[in-house]
Design a binder for these strands. Structure first.
Lengths: 352, 352
DNA sequence: TTGTAGGCGTTATCAT
DNA sequence: ATGATAACGCCTACAA
């Protein structure tokens, strides 16, 4: 029986060629299937010799046990679902990389899904994960996290969030130290003699933006600088919006001498626009980022920023999830430290 | 029976809580399971009224059919494996994004795996895909493609390659028009009056590097410029190596007035190093990239480059794979056109 | 140490 | 139009 038609309307689909099954190996090895199963799992309940023979035969035959059949009976697929706003974002892709490596090292496969910050798509994606019977889920940098919670809760599987904008108290998460990170950047600028320091944020109200803004404020207060509302503007975490937002700053009667950007992507747009105005970084205005994406050291000038250990954060998230999936406890909120990286986009303030 | 211990050594693992099955829904709806199955598949073989009732009940109960059980019987998992050198690469992540979206729109889920260009890992990854019984595989920007072929061939599933460095004639692939793309860039430079134009390539011998180098040469020949071996150097497609490689060019007694870089990442490193030498782009030397990654428009100066429609290429690859998985024919080699994007990193050659 | 007999949750086949 | 029954490929009692 090589192939047979499924009888579907199109009539084009065919059943794929049949793979070797455990029974085929059993026949070849002249033992029963369970014995093959045991041998392949290195069970001590099987004679070492026969086990070796079976493994040899299975190997030569190119036999691969079906994870789907195994998943059906064990009720664990050794699969996780990874939701990300979009992989085409340098921050997300680094985190994904860390997650994937760790998952792989522990025998897990990962289903990747982009949500595009589209609630409808997000729902589809989570439902797909439910049908796939994933053992756990990681959500990275979600902007609509609030929508997940009910959906995800239904699935009855552990969930870990990475830098989520809506940290529910009851879920597990890995987050960067937003506040102290941004405080370090802002303090770096005050120490360089800056007094008019602006903050170019993400969308107003996002958790990480709130925390970073708070860090910026703390540093300024410590340096005896009062809040100046006109120096706080918001973009959306991407270069385009940053180019618009910084216009407001540059149009000020007394423009800032330094700008703390929400992240490196924002800094990228800010630096571009500054240049388009004929101004120079850092001579006319200092610019700092957050994330330390790969391009930060190659911008002109190289970008002073805060390093987030993105891969490490992915790894931590996956390790946490693995614990949870094994029924163990795991730290609910993991906070990782940020590191100030001083490059050339920040310099001493000119004498006013 | 809420939970029971598996009896594994650790003793910590538990069977996850039982999900609703088709039989549960059947009981609730007072029909047989096959009828539920049919109703949920919108089969015409079931009374419209009862079908509606069943769907309502299933929906309210939050029932999700198990894709793993379905996969076992249908022998199709509606799952694909996606191998990428590393997602933490802007080119790859864009392609992945296009693939994922398209897959999702067609009801496919994608397993993502990084190979890290490590043959051992690559093997593990492909074996995992085999065990997962993926219906197809896409490999993006592989640098060790040659290793795959035997492994992948065993799997008996369709394979599509995206910008692979070792295009086997017998596989399906989506590739950018490397030659004409690089020729367009080089021609753009000759038209600007440049005569000493360098080529800063990827690793020597890679298919895409060979093709782009050929395009560069064609353009120069058309402009009546002879080959100058010392003007052709190689990096590895990343900024660090580019910084080293361009040193050779800058150290020349008669350095080039323009450099065609293998890709944008290479250009990023090249521009940085040029600046470190106190030179300016494009006044002292023009620089061009290839890919049009997101940052290209934000470099200082913005980068002249060749646009690869990365998402589109991912989409094409996935669509091609879907056809193949359905047993249809599909174009073996899809070549997509590159588009010249002129920005500010290239300018007229100064009078010598 | 090994084999036998279930069952995991679907879809498919054959009755009815 | 629906229901009984048998796979799918594996794991896991339990029996031998």
């Amino acid at each position: 029986m090589p192939e047979k038609n499924t009888g579907k309307s199109a009539g084009v689909e065919k059943r794929p060629h049949r793979q070797l099954s455990i029974k085929d190996i059993a026949r070849l090895a002249r033992v029963s299937h369970p014995t093959v199963s045991r041998a392949l799992q290195n069970s001590p309940l099987v004679n070492a010799q026969t086990a070796a023979k079976i493994r040899k035969i299975a190997d030569e035959a190119g036999y691969r046990a079906s994870a789907v059949a195994r998943g059906l009976v064990t009720r664990r697929t050794r699969t996780i679902g990874l939701v990300v706003t979009t992989v085409a974002d340098p921050f997300a892709s680094e985190v994904v990389c860390g997650i994937e490596q760790t998952a792989n090292d522990h025998g897990y496969s990962v289903f990747l899904a982009d949500s595009n910050a589209d609630p409808a798509r997000e729902k589809k994606v989570v439902q797909a994960f439910a049908e796939r019977r994933v053992d756990g889920i990681i959500v990275t940098s979600s902007r609509v996290g609030a929508l997940y919670l009910p959906l995800l809760a239904e699935m009855m599987v552990p969930i870990v969030l990475v830098n989520d904008q809506h940290p529910g108290a009851f879920v597990h998460s890995v987050m960067i130290e937003n506040l102290s990170g941004m405080r370090a950047i802002a303090a770096h600028l005050t120490k360089l003699g800056h007094r008019r320091i602006a903050y170019l944020g993400d969308r107003f109200g996002y958790q990480s933006d709130v925390e970073r803004l708070a860090g910026y404020r703390e540093a300024l207060h410590e340096a005896g600088i009062d809040d100046v509302p006109e120096l706080v503007v918001h973009g959306d975490g991407k270069p385009e919006a940053a180019m618009e937002a910084i216009e407001k700053l540059l149009a000020l009667a007394d423009p800032p001498t330094a700008v703390c950007c929400y992240n490196d992507m924002t800094a990228l747009g800010a630096m571009r626009k500054i240049r388009m105005h004929g101004l120079h970084v850092p001579e006319d205005i200092s610019v700092a980022g957050f994330d330390d994406l790969f391009f930060a050291r190659y911008t002109q000038p190289p970008l002073t920023t805060i390093r987030q250990p993105m891969r490490r954060m992915g790894q931590l998230a996956m390790e946490s999830l693995i614990k949870l999936m094994s029924g163990e406890e795991s730290v609910a909120q993991i906070r990782v430290d940020a590191e100030l990286i001083v490059r050339e986009s920040t310099a001493r303030a000119r004498k006013q």
